[in-house]
């Protein structure tokens, strides 16, 4: 037990080294959201009517899409560990099961902090005009990290369960589409009725509304911003905890 902190820090250092030396993934993590941002603002933006400058509406959505995609890449890292023999070695050592996964999770949080900062920067160059106090920025970053946290734990679970890098890659693809069925790109009430039910109640929507409310000053806020924020935090913490436990159990059970 006394070694848990040391194990986590050892595995985090490893995770950060692996992530920072995977140049291809880093480039993708930054370029993909930038391209999506360009696409939405320049191509779809003219036709969008969200009652505000569209870039101010859509930037938080793109940020979360990017963060979700970056977090989902953890599935690939975990799958590689499982299939490359690394996990065999680690499991023959007196290392607690979930510390191996938590190293990847902390590394994912740091990586996505970096990439989302870059995407925020690009969007400001493109005309995004955030209006947030330092405290609101801090809250927004915290919200994004909570979101990255639960997706990363889900990705870790997927990485433990799947048996091929292709399947792990397919997962990131799926996660990338989750924000489309939310209020990330268009207001929920413009969606068809059957989708509105899902989009209005899936975890991405309250997270987006909260981040947007915090940083995009001129976007009309939802009726009850505090309530939505609490809902977002509860969603992220709840899912994060559930997937962390599930990933730890699956890791122990896989033989």
């Amino acid at each position: 037990m006394t070694y848990v902190l040391r194990d986590v820090s050892t595995m985090t250092v490893r995770g950060l080294r692996l992530v920072s030396r995977d140049v291809d993934a880093m480039i993708t993590a930054v370029l993909l959201p930038v391209i999506i941002l360009l696409m939405f603002v320049l191509i779809f933006g003219g036709a969008m009517d969200t009652g505000t400058e569209y870039i101010n509406y859509v930037t938080p959505g793109v940020i979360l899409l990017a963060a979700g995609f970056g977090a989902a890449n953890t599935a690939l890292a975990v799958e590689h560990d499982m299939s490359s023999g690394m996990v065999e070695r680690l499991r023959s050592m007196p290392v607690t099961a979930w510390t191996v996964l938590s190293g990847h999770v902390v590394a994912s949080l740091v990586k996505n902090l970096v990439t989302t900062t870059v995407v925020f920067g690009v969007s400001i160059l493109m005309g995004f005009r955030p209006e947030a106090s330092p405290l609101e920025w801090l809250a927004a970053v915290g919200m994004i990290l909570l979101f990255v946290g639960w997706i990363t734990w889900l990705a870790a679970l997927v990485g433990v369960l799947v048996r091929s890098p292709d399947a792990a890659g397919g997962f990131s693809f799926f996660v990338m589409f989750l924000p489309y069925a939310s209020s990330a790109f268009v207001p929920v009430d413009t969606l068809p009725g059957w989708l509105r039910g899902f989009a209005g109640h899936q975890p991405v929507t309250p997270v987006i509304e909260t981040v947007r409310g915090l940083v995009s000053g001129d976007v009309p806020t939802v009726a009850d911003p505090a309530g939505v924020a609490v809902l977002a935090v509860v969603w992220c913490l709840g899912l994060g905890l559930a997937f962390a436990v599930a990933a730890g159990l699956a890791f122990r059970a896989r033989r």
Binding site: R14, R17, L18, R21, S84, G85, M86, E88, R89
Partner: peptide, 10 residues
Amino acid sequence: GQQVAVDDKL
């Protein structure tokens, strides 16, 4: 083990 278990990027 049979597979070499080291991190290539380290």
